[in-house]
Design a protein around this nucleic acid. Structure first.
Length: 566
DNA sequence: TACTTGACTTAGAAGGAGGCTC
DNA sequence: GAGCCTCCTTCTAAGTCAAGTA
């Protein structure tokens, strides 16, 4: 039906995001259920009954007891400070030392609970599933204009202990419970407004169609605003995503000019221009993030390009057999380490030496530059150009080029998928998308190796049988033995294929140990490249995108043909 | 211009669902 | 049918960037 897809509709050009918005409001975290009397908290070895508020916060800690977090000084200090705020004055006077607190009984209780949940009967599990489904149907969708859309996060974040990434100064602080009185609702005037839970009120109900969120609240750790927004499959998200890739494609058209420009700027008389040009070179070549300034002490100490400090790079005029090598070593977003040694042009190297002159390790490398200056410059070079567009452009363009290079049309489907994953991996490495090696990695690798060994044995057995059958046929020359030879030949072939498949799988998994492919697939790779590749080589799209991903990229799957070029 | 706030995208970890194997 | 493993979904933190404010 024409017009049934959002990507075939006209877009708003006045900056408004919708005309009609109706939803049921968020789902709140369930209220705290006090522990059964038999579950004890001990202080200095003696059991102690806690008031409900103090007990609730204690359970947050108890639930994390097996986690490394609870051993960290900052976590413990922040937790204890916030926990004491929830105690009665009597509790406060008794509980003065976290080291004397014993949460182990509580921890055991929660472990048993979770074990019991796993042991539930099919029927009980089914009941829970149905209840979740009911909640999803009731609160998980909204009407935006003429579409029923899935909401991304309709549940309010439950209270708990803040878990920052890396060395976060606020780890362990109490994330307080969010009440209806904290929530701002956004919906259209002419919609049926969501009702707050009985006996409560919303903080505010507003009708702002210049934004896309349905509800928001202010979080107490950083004081930032959290939102309830739509799912990636929605029109409002999909349209923006599509637009993002179109901007990256426009960059493709003028990137040569921009590169020529920044290379020219390396020679500028003005320091600020040279810094801008070297930074842009890093952003383009290494896919570094922009690097906004951060408030010290509020978050973990991480940097991006513009916020690099002297201590984050080392210069080697000569290293092994290469000249003008820059070594990067810093913590980026999510405190993921970026480590890379790259040879650069002499002019870049000389500039870097100059930027480092008379500076301390903790000084900014680019002291005349920040993201705002950089983005203003980029805006002048191309409409809509910002630092992050380079990441999108370089990621998508790498995927397309790698797919061209790695795919052999004669390969089997599993071999082609390995090629796809390798192309995807090249992007993930470029963007530094890392993950902790899965806890079961070694074991699962060993399992796979066992399967391969077994398959190898099967293969030699099958080959022996084939040889015997051949000999048999040579001796007898009858039809029956001829058929037997054919059968054995096919068996060998089948096992060879299975073995190949297993070996491919092992390679893929090994190469993926510390690399996360999902982030680039979801956020940086123009989905039309993958769709076109699937169509060109007859790969079912399900092999590349799972259900959620197909929903998010429905527009691309519908739009791109086999000849699509990024 | 410097700084703050708000809205939105990008990120890895954790937990859960469901498929596979014995 | 249980246990295991893998992959998917959910969760929410941590970025980017533009607009507003002093």
């Amino acid at each position: 039906l024409p017009g049934s897809f959002w990507w075939e509709e006209e877009r708003y050009t006045d900056g408004s995001k919708w005309r009609f918005l109706e939803h049921k409001g968020p789902v709140f975290a369930p209220p705290y259920e006090p522990l059964p009397g038999k579950v004890k908290f001990y202080y200095g070895g003696k059991p102690m009954k806690l008031s409900a508020p103090a007990e609730e916060v204690a359970t947050f800690f108890a639930k994390m007891l097996d986690h490394e977090y609870t051993t960290k000084d900052i976590f413990r200090k922040n937790f204890f400070k916030d926990w004491r705020k929830e105690m009665t004055s009597e509790e406060k006077s008794v509980i003065t030392d976290l080291n004397k607190c014993d949460f182990s009984d509580m921890s055991e209780y929660f472990k048993a609970q979770s074990e019991a949940r796993k042991q539930m009967s099919k029927e009980e599990k089914q009941k829970i599933k149905e209840e979740n489904e009911r909640l999803l149907q009731e609160y998980g969708f909204c009407i935006m204009d003429n579409h029923k859309e899935r909401i991304g996060n309709f549940r309010i974040e439950p209270p708990g202990l803040f878990r920052g990434r890396g060395d976060h100064p606020k780890m362990g602080m109490l994330k307080r419970r969010i009440r209806p009185e904290d929530i701002i609702i956004n919906c259209s005037k002419d919609s049926k407004h969501p009702k707050p839970p009985p006996g409560t009120k919303w903080k505010e109900v507003r009708h702002d169609n210049k934004v896309t969120w349905l509800a928001s609240w202010t979080e107490n750790i950083q004081g930032s605003i959290k939102y309830i927004m739509l799912n990636p499959s929605s029109r409002i998200k999909g349209e923006k995503d599509w637009q993002k890739y179109e901007t990256a494609r426009r960059l493709k058209k003028c990137v040569d000019r921009i590169r020529a420009q920044y290379r020219e700027d390396w020679k500028s008389k003005e320091m600020r221009i040279r810094q801008r040009a070297v930074a842009l070179y890093f952003i383009d070549k290494l896919a570094l993030r922009a690097g906004n300034e951060k408030e010290e002490g509020e978050t973990a100490d991480t940097v991006g390009c513009c916020s690099l400090r002297v201590e984050h790079i080392k210069l080697y005029p000569k290293l092994d057999d290469q000249e003008y090598v820059v070594e990067f070593d810093f913590l980026g977003k999510d405190s993921i380490r970026y480590y890379n040694k790259i040879p650069v042009e002499k002019r870049v190297f000389k500039n870097l030496q100059l930027f480092l002159e008379n500076k301390q390790p903790e000084d900014d490398l680019f002291d005349r530059l920040n993201t705002s200056i950089l983005n203003k410059h980029l805006q002048e070079l191309m409409d809509g150009l910002t630092a992050k567009v380079f990441r999108t452009y370089n990621a998508s363009s790498t995927l397309q080029q790698q797919l061209k290079e790695l795919t052999c049309s004669d390969d089997s489907i599993p071999a082609k998928i390995l090629s796809y994953n390798r192309a995807n991996r090249a992007v993930a490495i470029l963007c530094n998308h890392q993950r902790a090696p899965p806890k079961t990695f070694e074991k699962s690798m060993q399992n796979l190796q066992n399967k391969i060994d077994e398959k190898q044995n099967q293969l030699s057995a099958a080959r022996k049988q084939l040889k015997a059958a051949k000999a048999d046929h040579k001796a007898s020359h009858d039809d029956k033995s001829k058929k037997a030879v054919e059968m054995k030949r096919k068996a060998v072939q089948r096992i060879e294929e299975q073995l190949m498949k297993l070996q491919v799988q092992a390679t893929d998994r090994e190469e993926n140990k510390q690399i996360a492919l999902g982030t680039s697939k979801l956020n940086y790779l123009d989905p039309r490249i993958s769709v076109a590749w699937c169509k060109k080589f007859g790969i079912p799209i399900e092999k590349i995108y799972n259900k959620t991903q197909r929903e998010k990229f429905a527009w691309a799957i519908d739009m791109a043909d086999k000849d699509y070029e990024f």
